[in-house]
Nucleic acid binder design. Structure first.
Lengths: 168, 168
DNA sequence: TTGAATTTTCAGTAATTATTGAAAGTTTGA
DNA sequence: TCAAACTTTCAATAATTACTGAAAATTCAA
């Protein structure tokens, strides 16, 4: 496979993976493009490479910035903004984890804790089943949340070293 | 909060979480309903509780079965099929992980390995950046994949015990 | 200040994804 | 073997999500 084909396939694959995990396909494609770019790219270049409109490019770049995966780069003597992606994969994983935790896990955690306190006849089997499940889920989400905290304060080799040390 | 409100909120919350993670909202809601049901439910009951059509209920139940999260239960002397969800949260987490690994991670892993072999001028900075990123991503996905394997062969208390033992 | 360059917004539209409901298919007891 | 009970399929439709492009807002050099 040559470079041009490889690039195209990477952008496609990353976009598909993103959409399978609830991330806008185009945002993932912009991310893919920036991940393999040796230099910062302008909005124009991103529009051009992915054949998307200015509005679309702008919104998805902003979104990537709000995930801390991309930042602006200012080139002296140039009015345009350029964009550069974080390239370290462990750092990328941490930033995605941090945002998903904040945006999606913690709100659910709070709801589950609320739901552990529903009032109702404890001898009623529906209420019993509900409360049991809320307790189980609440406990699990708490542990997941703490696991993410550990990961966020680790470096890659320590983290995987610990996790994988028992492979046969 | 009373039971009826709590149930409604749990179904809503689980559906929202699912959709944020790329899972059909209704499938997640059917799952939520079955998770808190003390007995197997029929298609009719699911349609009724969630106000969805027969076709929709049927497709999402099939989907949950294909994820190994739900199975059929046959009641002697009854023609209808009833559905029961796996209730153990660690088992649920494993089954979801197993399927996402199989359906989404492994295909990406294979593509990334392919992409590590793109032909091209190594002195070209675009090619260099591309290859470096494919190597980094390939290595990372391999480690994630192995981590999931460990998790799949662990029990909950061992897994979290190991992971959380270093919390200050 | 001014105005050209650039970025952002957002109403309208397109594309994608999910749902309905009725017809076709299957199963099972008599 | 029949036919009622039940499940599955899928074309049509609805709902949701994403995208465009032009206008508005912003920035900045002169």
């Amino acid at each position: 496979m040559n470079f041009a084909e490889g690039k195209k396939q990477f952008i496609q694959t990353w976009g598909k993976l993103g959409s399978e995990w609830g991330i806008n396909r185009t945002m993932a494609q912009v991310h893919a493009l920036l991940l393999i770019a040796p230099k910062p790219l302008s909005t124009e270049e991103i529009m051009e490479e992915l054949s998307i409109s200015r509005g679309n490019a702008n919104m998805n770049i902003r979104d990537l910035i709000s995930w801390n995966l991309v930042h602006k780069e200012l080139v002296p003597g140039d009015r345009k903004e350029y964009f550069l992606a974080e390239k370290d994969i462990w750092e990328i994983a941490k930033r995605i984890s941090r945002e998903r935790k904040r945006r999606e896990i913690e709100p659910v955690k709070n709801v589950l804790h609320q739901l552990q306190e529903v009032e109702g006849d404890r001898s009623n089997e529906d209420v019993k089943a509900f409360t049991d499940m809320m307790n189980q889920l609440g406990g699990f989400v708490d542990k997941m949340d703490k696991s993410v905290d550990i990961m966020l304060s680790s470096d890659q080799s320590w983290f995987f070293g610990m996790l994988l040390k028992l492979i046969k």
